[in-house]
Amino acid sequence: MSPFDLLLGFAVCATAALALLSRELFRAIVMFIVFGLCMALVWVRLEAPDIALAEAAIGAGITGVLLLDTLGYLRRRYRKPANGQGGEGAR
């Protein structure tokens, strides 16, 4: 185990914690994308280049786009105060 592994493990845990505990949903999702990229590096360290490829393309790319798109939908829907519920859902 090299110091790089320690650093990577710390990065993975930190980005996961930020993705799970950030108050702002946008930041949480961006942190989740960063988490996916760190996971891709972890797969490289585990000698699994196939999974690293898939994780980088799917975990970080497609999942991130899907989540951000949904977040954009939540925000668009509550930009107008017509509904009277405030921006509760989009936070």
């Binding site: 280049p49 196939d50 490829l53 898939a54 393309a57 799917i58 790319g61 497609i62």
Partner: peptide, 13 residues
């Protein structure tokens, strides 16, 4: 390393 899943993900992207 490579294959259907990764290629599918890249094409989807």
């Amino acid at each position: 390393p490579g294959g259907a899943f990764q290629a599918g993900a890249i094409l989807a992207a």
